[in-house]
Design a protein around this nucleic acid. Sequence first.
DNA 1: TTGTCTGCAAATTCTTTGCAAGTTT
DNA 2: AAACTTGCAAAGAATTTGCAGACAA
Lengths: 156, 156
Amino acid sequence: MPVGNNNYLLIEIILMEAAEKFRLICEKAGLTVTHQRFVIWETLASLPGHPSPEEVYARVKGEIPSISLATVYKTIHLFMDSDLFHEVSLHHGSMRVETNPQPHHHLVCRVCKSITDIDAGQIELRMPPGELPGGFAAERYAVDVLGVCADCRKRG
Amino acid sequence: MPVGNNNYLLIEIILMEAAEKFRLICEKAGLTVTHQRFVIWETLASLPGHPSPEEVYARVKGEIPSISLATVYKTIHLFMDSDLFHEVSLHHGSMRVETNPQPHHHLVCRVCKSITDIDAGQIELRMPPGELPGGFAAERYAVDVLGVCADCRKRG
DNA sequence: TTGTCTGCAAATTCTTTGCAAGTTT
DNA sequence: AAACTTGCAAAGAATTTGCAGACAA
């Protein structure tokens, strides 16, 4: 694997301490650096799994007792808008019912958030030959293809 | 394709009118048949896409003006518990942040709802040779492997 | 009948907003 | 100083719950 100039920059970033790194990230994203944001960012990066805002809030409170849940929400949204983190689920805010009985997957537009079904046969999945980690018994697969729908592409 | 005895049953079910079909489904699932449930079931089956409870409620109100939103919620949950329909998203009730910067997919346990990451390299995806429906521009894939985790398998 | 649903209203949970005071640039 | 961010409290949205009367088996 060839090492390009970009990789030197990458290595520098990795070696930088967290605060520096965060400063750089914020600069690139056009975000103001604040202590709250730094601690929330560090906390998110350190928490394994898929933390909820409440969990992040609880953790951050250890460092900044005066932090408010509202700030955690605002900051998480800010980070997501700047692509620093993603949300785990589509439609997290409201329940949606899957009414298509056919095996299918989803085309999810990241601009307008629309979800279109695509026949399961159109996507071929291949799992590893052995077992899945920790003896997980797979039953079915749900694939979300993330991208931009035709309408949103036309609109620029 | 050989036609077994099960297929005769299947054909009968298909030919049955909706009310009969619903009665059979309820019997199999051990659910009481009510008019509200029948109309909600028909509505769900007829609505394309991924309707929210509010949308279902609005539709059903046309047939049963006295229906309440609470009943719609209760019934949708009932149907989901009986596997008549699925939910589109995991974690629909609260925001979850994806903190793993590595490309990865999810192992989702349908019993305990836990979500475990699996390296993206472990799953091979193949898309159709042509374009995706309607000129959708794919950027990345998110795969949820649904099944039962090791812990829940042990517990029976 | 007997147990199970339904509709209503109140309660909860999750998230957003307005604004004054505090920080960052 | 100007612009932006924070914390608080109140508002809002989405969903659940308790319960009395209505319905299904």
